[in-house]
Write a protein that binds this DNA or RNA. Sequence first.
DNA 1: CCCCCCTGAATGAACGTTCATTCAGGTTAG
DNA 2: CTAACCTGAATGAACGTTCATTCAGGGGGG
Lengths: 190, 190
Amino acid sequence: MIKPEKRDEIIRAAMELIAEHGFHGAPMALVAERAGVAAGTIYRYFESKDDLIRETHARLEGQILAALTEDYPATQPVRERFLHIGRKLVEYFIASPMEFRFMEQFFNSPYGAAHRREKLFGNKEKSIIFKLFEEALEQQIIKPLPLPVLCALTFGPLVDVCRDHALEFIVLDEALIAQTVAACWDGVKL
Amino acid sequence: MIKPEKRDEIIRAAMELIAEHGFHGAPMALVAERAGVAAGTIYRYFESKDDLIRETHARLEGQILAALTEDYPATQPVRERFLHIGRKLVEYFIASPMEFRFMEQFFNSPYGAAHRREKLFGNKEKSIIFKLFEEALEQQIIKPLPLPVLCALTFGPLVDVCRDHALEFIVLDEALIAQTVAACWDGVKL
DNA sequence: CCCCCCTGAATGAACGTTCATTCAGGTTAG
DNA sequence: CTAACCTGAATGAACGTTCATTCAGGGGGG
């Protein structure tokens, strides 16, 4: 009798430990302890630590996408849609520091680079963000720069300020978030 | 006879290995081998691996500062000085991929967070970048945002595009660098 | 209804490997 | 010869992973 809740507990424990201490500060023994299972049990649900990490990331990515598209103003101009996504992204990360720090660990690792390469050059459906930029490029309302540069100029700073907030270098309130997201748009707009 | 060159070789080897494979892919035995010394010898020059890493970072930071301030147009307006620093930063990182990747590893680790906290809240002399932003704020030519946010909006994207270049997601030529640095300024200017 | 057997999820001690660090002994310069 | 320097095998801790064992609970025979 496989209990799905046990799988969830393992993923939650892994996410928390990796968020707090990084991949190498999250030994399987600790993950097991925090999940309330024995070390060996993890291997009934996941092939390896790599597999556990990828599964944890996949689940989080789904949650984040859901957060970004909540109340998505699909009929509004590109700029308003960008501001919406940017604001939602920062709000989600601030409200979920564990999830944010896991994502940071993930993207600053070979896992993340591989995942990004796949997104950029793979044949998978384009993300909502890529579609937004392509639409803006067609309308000639943003600078004609490569997609990765546009991402760096917009979502790059947003992630950076989330990190600074998590490290308590700054305090992001609603007004500062709005100003920052708007400044990102100012960087790429024509 | 302590040979200073041996210390340099150890630092160089550590930087290369950490850049290529991260902190945990750079065991002391490999560092020693690449430096052409025995494992134990490292401990004649450095207290611990932590110490070696911090020393390696300190040396690199000096090199980068030198690169940024080369031909620094101290008498020009703030914007020109910002463009100069931004361009030099990207050019240095592109010309020195090893150094760039080491710095990435360093800042995406507890070492980096501690270092940044020290820079922001310590009593040390202000960096050239902080001074530049403070001058711009006084002149009211950039948006009145907290220093970390200004850094995120400007140097954040620059580091991001350097990473994308290193991963071969984009190719940064002189024109694209200039466009990107200018876009960063557009994000913060009033 | 009870009892026995069987299934397979769960366990956690043990394994093999890898790591940072140490130190006894060899080597070299002066 | 002495002292400083260097070496690399040894050490012990920590890791991911394995697997012999345990045991709760479902089902069938009496």
